[in-house]
Amino acid sequence: MSEAVPPWAVVILPIALVSVAVVTVGFDAVLSAAAVRGRPGSLRELGFRAAAPLREVLRLLVQPSRRTTAADTALGRIGVVLVPVAAVLAGAVLPLGFRSLSDPTVGIVWFNAMEALAWAAVWLTGWGPNSALSLIGGYRFLAQGLAYELPHMFAITTAALGAESLQVGEVVAAQDGLWFAVWMPVAFFVYLLSAMAMSFWGPFGHPLGRDAAGGAAMELSGVDRLVFLGGRWLLMVVTAGVSVPLFLGGGHGPLLPAWAWTLVKTALVLAALVAGRRLLPTLRMERYTEFAWLVLVPATLLQALVVAVVVLNR
């Protein structure tokens, strides 16, 4: 189903992901500023607030890095750069319309493998600076991984099961008529939760929590901080974006061209997550883990069973 892409797409993809991430962060900044400072007085003010992330990029580029006492700089830096690398590599299977940079037959497993690199990345980043609070943040993410990963894997397997394929292009093709989100609502909902959890963002931001003074990222400054936090937004964009081919019919839709449908759906998912984040406090894993294993795991298993029965009778 998926069509060939020109070789220069390999350069376009990272640029596109970064652009979407910048817009998303801008939207988030506008909403945050509205809570902190009230409604913007003018359109100019609104634009200024939306540009805050770009100013922060420049600030961090100019800021020098520093090292803490007896830090493990090598491991720490590997953790930092691993976040954007994992995010963009996971994005390789992300189709724009029906064309993706790469559509391997095990695309879903590839996506799963790449996002799981975040486990290593966040822990290494927390370990690196030899700082107690950052170490606490790093370990928090491991606990988070243990809670979100399993329901997440069942959710994406359910989508693969619906198409009886691990190829993202075929999963999209299988949703020509009915979107998977419609008849796999539990898997879709769990997927959205885990998209936030694996990008340690929003209600799942405890590894970088304010209570630990910034957690795993607390000793990062300058370009390291930029790469780590920017990488987190990339991860968030990619994981939210993958929900479109897996559950929301990818490029399928009336009137508009396929690529436009992908963009519209991705934008809606991101907007819903960024706005919805404001409704929830942080979910701490010592509470959430129980919910994940005793509610989400059986729920996704039942969802998979229902889909398996449907597949058998197709």
Binding site: R67, S131, V223
Partner: peptide
């Protein structure tokens, strides 16, 4: 960025 500092700083708590 200005030249990176050579010294080590203490971790924050």
């Amino acid at each position: 960025a200005p030249a990176r500092s050579v010294g080590e700083v203490e971790p924050f708590s």
